[in-house]
Simulated scan of single mutants.
Amino acid sequence: MLGLDEYQQIVEAAPNMIWRSGLDAKCNYFNKTWLNFTGRQLEEEMGNGWTQGVHKDDLERCLKIYLDNFSAQKPFEMEYRLKCFDGEYRWINDRGVPFYDNDAKFLGFIGSCIDITEKIEGQILKELAQIDDLCQINSRQYAEKLIRQKLERTKNEGNISLTIINIDNFKRVNDRYGQNVSHAVLRKVSRAIQDNVRQSDICGRYDGEKFIVGLPDTDSREASNIAERIRQAVHSLRIKHSHGSFTVTASIGVCQITDEEFLDMLIDKVDQALLKNRGKDCVTVYNQQEAIALITVSS
């Protein structure tokens, strides 16, 4: 058995940041690792002093999780930003558990923390790569990835349709009204698309003024109905600018996909076929063979 001094040495030298609180829920111990991280003295952290280092945007949530679980004597886990000795805030994973004496009498909580900044920042970078910042919709790459995954899972078991939405005369809008207004158009159209598809559908910004929607378990007829709903929603938009407002329209191409192998080709071919054959403010439906044939004949 280890002696008390040995246990204390182990806790002090532990790579994790360790804290303890008493029956009043106030902290009465922090190990050397915690103090080295914060750059503060034990006396400064005692009681509620440690909360001074918690980021102001995380403090209320952090205290609620801690105090609610303390009252219930239940283990908890939370993440928050804590100020490091160099003045920078770093993300901390904090796990707390109640502890008891030999007679099962509740004595307080003990907690262990680790720095997870790299993990959190990696998640943020991943999310940034997945989301188109302007339109707050999936990026092209991420939308295509999700569609491929859906195709793989439903192979030979269901229909998946693809929709390409192109804002008509977008260049004129940009030339006439400028970038701020054209960006407003993109955001409004993106919102109209997302508001008129199902939760299971996969939306993304494809390129410039084009959007892509993958429609799982959907044949071309049902997909055309969804596309028509989107077309009407876009048509009803009013875009305001300094001298009034105007409307926009969209041309939409629909194609049912039967094979993941053709996904890249079909996206390109439906898009090109739509550009060649669109009548503005309309929905055009192709089957996979028609879409391929259209581009084969024209090439």
Results as ranks from 00 to 15, higher is better:
Arg172Leu: 14
Tyr177Met: 02
Thr38Trp: 11
Gln288Ala: 03
Leu186Lys: 05
Ala13Trp: 01
Trp34Ser: 00
Glu88His: 13
Ala233Tyr: 06
Ser182Pro: 05
Pro75Arg: 12
Val197Gln: 07
Gly108Phe: 06
Arg20Tyr: 12
Asn174Met: 08
Ile292Gly: 00
Ile10Ser: 03
Gln194Tyr: 03
Leu82Ser: 02
Ser251Asp: 08
Asn287Phe: 01
His241Ile: 04
Thr154Cys: 11
Leu63Asn: 01
Arg238Ile: 08
Cys203Gly: 10
Leu134Pro: 10
Gln136Tyr: 09
Ala273Gln: 02
Met17Gln: 08
Asn69Phe: 06
Ile65His: 01
Tyr286Ile: 09
Leu263Ser: 05
Ile164His: 02
Leu151Gly: 00
Thr218Pro: 05
Phe262Asn: 12
Ala143Phe: 10
Phe262Ala: 06
Cys203Arg: 00
Asn159Val: 01
Ala293Phe: 10
Tyr7Trp: 15
Trp34Thr: 06
Asn36Ser: 08
Ile267Gln: 12
Asp217Cys: 09
Ser139Asn: 07
Ile65Glu: 06
Asn48Lys: 07
Gly53Gln: 03
Ser21Leu: 04
Ser299Ile: 11
Ser21Ile: 13
Leu263Gln: 04
Asp195Arg: 01
Arg153Pro: 01
Asp68Ile: 04
Arg176Ser: 15
Ser139Ala: 10
Trp91His: 15
Glu222Ile: 11
Glu45Cys: 14
Ile167Thr: 05
Trp91Gln: 13
Ala291Phe: 03
Glu88Lys: 11
Lys56Tyr: 12
Cys282Tyr: 02
Val185His: 04
Asp132Gln: 11
Arg95Thr: 10
Ile212Ala: 03
Phe170Val: 08
Thr296Pro: 01
Glu222Thr: 10
Lys56Gln: 13
Ser21Gly: 08
Gly22Arg: 04
Ser242Asn: 13
Val285Lys: 10
Lys83Met: 12
Lys83Val: 04
Asn277Val: 14
Leu42Trp: 04
Val189Trp: 02
Trp50Asp: 07
Asp5Lys: 14
Ser200Ile: 15
Val297Ser: 14
Gln52Gly: 04
Glu88Met: 12
Lys64Leu: 05
Ala143Thr: 15
Leu42Pro: 05
Asn31Trp: 06
Leu35Arg: 05
Phe246Glu: 00
Tyr89Met: 10
Leu82Pro: 02
His183Asp: 15
